[in-house]
Design a binder for these strands. Structure first.
Length: 679
RNA sequence: GCCGGAGUAGCUCAGUUGGUGAGAGCGGGCGUUUCAUACGCGCUAGGUCGGGGGUUCAACUCCCUCCUCCGGCACCA
């Protein structure tokens, strides 16, 4: 459209999902939000782009491929397809799908790396620490659970020592704080912003950004025995997917000024949607990388919460049991119903509960009764009274009742737009449905059937055309959440499908006069479910309760297998060094939880001495205190006392092995006396 | 333990700079209309606004304190 102002530009990204995972409700949720926002902006006539993709590098995938006898590339190829094919089934239509193994990505990541290096922010050094294959990252000991278990993946970490490049993250502490201060909406919601703030304020350390211990990654330019740390690689996708330095898309969708704040109004809005678990990478590392490379920053990192399912934590098993694709197939109203519920029921940004019963209630109440039935009754009235046409819509014919109705609708829909702009889908939909409720009220107030009985056809026509006009608007306003249903609704209203175009606002509220026009054929848009139908669906869709104990007391148990075979052994030691450790058999006499310390138990242990010792151990996630009493344990008896503050001192430690939440205490048979030496 | 957030009707939550009798949606109960997908509309919640103190003419809204929940950090040598 020549001559028109440039459309507002919006670039929305979801995380690229690690291909070892599958599309599940959690990442489906993020992706649906992204698509709903994309559709909203598209309807407003904005220049919008949605990027999704897959993260395909790392040790974990290299090993997985090996186990399956595939090359890494072949393995990730087959895995990536699952995501690519999943999203359209949720009515998600991304503009691009980036894979970190694509050449277009790799070459540009190398460019970024070189700019960061040129800026003097990459230094070679050595790193030795625990490494979690699941996270693709080193863990400080403080981040690990009892028994060197990764807190996120509940799997044992490995001891790795290797040459690595360090990124000078510490040099960016002040600049990041400055960014958060000057651009308060860079991280949202506020509670997450505070967390980021406190993390950065507490001090940043250089960040290890390369590996030499595996090869499935992007080689470091000029030092190809290193591959890039997976986050350096992965985060860059948001930018590389646009095509790089001088590409058309980069100019359109990435801000141009590396020194400007990301809120400059004439720049494109770059919105990263992320789960709260990966906020730090996006809100700290990513802008620091970009600053170092002297590249412009995104506008906003929005971290949403986690979902529980029917009030329960989404464990691995549940996560697999709640399959969004299956819901999209089996729910009445299909993917749109799922989308609507996710967008409407969960306050975006907060943790939320995905409740199957609430979903069906909402389907019946909001979709079936409130909106679906409204459409049905209005169209039915039109068939009976106006020859299935929408009569001319004319201001002059309207009464106060009609105008009050339109005024309220106008207010609600305007509010809905504002809420979409503010990334508050739940509020936007609430406001949209307020307009629908208002229309139901108006039908009753205006009572066109009564006017028809009186023979006042002109009045009937005015009422019905007013309703049809509002339904037209509703059909567009529901489209971000319920794209297919929006167009079905429009077909019934005798309208063409929504056809977004740049600078054309399809969510404009237009109550200007319009001529009469024919309507389409009415058919229930959202057939309501009766009680039996609800029960049957619930029975089929709700994951069956775990047969064993409930989740909270018995967290998911990784396989009993210990460290992966690749774990390097520690350096050999002489016998004397071992002998210096005085291991004794002890019997637990008392055990209690240490208040305010998640993981600590305070024990009284008889190690054959005059009086029992107090030992503080990080066992609380695995053992109920009372379950330990009477157990024989192996105690490191000559360990220096350790003070936990407030007079809580530990005299020794216990040997334990296994998984974080299901630790196994090293023990001996019952006939060994306390104090017996172990060697 | 430190930092942050939150505790308001059965459920999910709104409640602006402190001020007329504390709200919405859903569910439940009662009533009612008949155009409609047994759908709509109206009425109905006797809630100590987590507990306790305080400031004030006046506090859900400010201060202190305690409790609980949720995050983040810390805590297992």
């Amino acid at each position: 459209m020549p001559g028109e102002a440039q459309a507002k530009r919006v670039y929305i990204t979801t995380p690229i999902y690690y291909v070892n995972d599958v599309p599940h409700l959690g990442n489906g949720y993020t992706t649906i939000i992204g698509d709903a926002l994309r559709r909203y902006h598209q309807l407003r006539g904005h220049d919008v782009r949605l990027l999704v993709g897959t993260d395909e590098h790392g040790l974990k995938l290299e090993r997985e491929a090996q186990e399956q006898g595939l090359t890494p590339q072949a393995f990730v190829d087959q895995m990536s397809v699952r995501f690519r094919e999943a999203w359209p089934k949720l009515l998600v239509e991304p503009d691009d799908f980036i894979r970190t193994t694509e050449a277009r990505h790799e070459s540009l990541v190398r460019d970024i790396w070189q700019r960061v290096a040129a800026n003097g922010d990459l230094k070679k050094g050595h790193y030795e620490d625990w490494y979690c294959v699941g996270c693709e990252s080193f863990k400080t000991e403080k981040e690990l659970l009892e028994g060197n278990i990764c807190a996120l993946h509940k799997k044992p970490v490995e001891r790795l020592k290797e040459e690595t490049y360090f990124f000078a993250l510490d040099q960016y502490q002040d600049k990041l704080l400055d960014l958060y201060a000057k651009s308060p909406s860079f991280v949202e919601p506020d509670s997450r912003r505070n967390e980021v703030l406190s993390f950065v304020s507490s001090g940043l350390k250089p960040l290890s950004v390369s590996r030499t211990s595996f090869s499935w990654g992007i080689p470091v330019p000029s030092d190809p025995k290193h591959v890039m740390y997976v986050w350096f690689d992965a985060l860059s996708n948001y930018w590389t997917a646009l095509g790089g330095w001088d590409s058309e898309l980069t100019k359109r969708f990435w801000p141009s000024d590396p020194h400007a704040l990301p809120t400059k109004s004439d720049d494109p809005m770059v919105i990263h949607l992320v789960g709260k678990d990966i906020l730090r990478f996006h809100a700290v590392f990513w802008p620091a990388f970009l600053m170092s490379a002297q590249m412009p920053l995104p506008s906003k990192v929005y971290a949403h919460g986690f979902l529980t399912v029917d009030g329960q934590k989404m464990s691995k098993s549940l996560r697999n049991a709640v399959d969004p694709l299956r819901l999209a197939r089996e729910l009445p109203g299909g993917a749109s119903t799922l989308r609507y519920h996710l967008l409407r029921a969960i306050s975006f940004g907060q943790d939320g509960d995905f409740d199957h019963a609430a979903l069906l209630e909402r389907y019946n109440a909001d979709l079936g009764k409130n909106l679906g039935n409204l459409l049905s009754r209005v169209l039915g009235l039109c068939v009976k009274n106006t020859g299935n046409t929408a009569p001319a819509f004319e201001q002059a014919k309207r009464t106060d009742l009609d105008n009050a109705f339109l005024k309220d609708v106008q207010l609600s829909l305007a509010a809905a737009r504002e809420h979409w702009d503010a990334i508050e889908p739940h509020r936007a939909l609430e406001a949209t449905w307020a307009a629908s409720s208002r229309a139901n009220l108006y039908v009753d107030q205006a009572a066109p059937w009564a006017e028809a009985k009186k023979g006042d056809l002109a009045r009937v026509e005015t009422i019905l055309t007013t309703l049809v006009k509002v339904l037209e608007h509703l059909s567009a306003f529901i489209a971000p959440a319920l794209p297919d249903k929006a167009n079905e609704m429009r077909a019934q209203l005798g309208l063409q499908p929504l056809a977004p175009a740049l600078n054309r606002d399809l969510l404009a509220i237009d109550f200007s006069d319009a001529p009469a026009r024919p309507l389409g054929t009415a058919t229930p848009l959202f057939p309501t479910l009766d009680a039996a139908g609800v029960a049957a669906l619930l029975d089929s869709l709700v994951p069956k309760a775990e047969p064993a104990m409930n989740e909270s007391t018995q967290p998911e148990k990784p396989p009993a297998a210990a460290l992966p075979s690749g774990a390097p052994l520690s350096e050999p030691i002489a016998y004397d060094q071992f002998a210096a450790t005085d291991l004794r058999i002890g019997i637990v006499l008392e055990a209690e939880k240490v208040p305010k310390k998640d993981k600590l138990l305070k024990l009284k242990v008889d190690v054959g001495e005059a009086s029992p010792r107090q030992i503080v151990a990080g066992l609380a996630l695995s053992f109920a205190p009372e379950g330990l009493v009477g157990k024989r344990v192996i105690v490191v008896a000559n360990l220096a006392p350790r003070d936990f503050g407030k007079g809580l001192v530990s005299h020794g430690m216990l040997l334990a092995a296994g998984e974080s939440n299901s630790l196994s205490l090293a023990t001996v048979s019952d006939d060994v006396a306390p104090g017996t030496k172990v060697k």
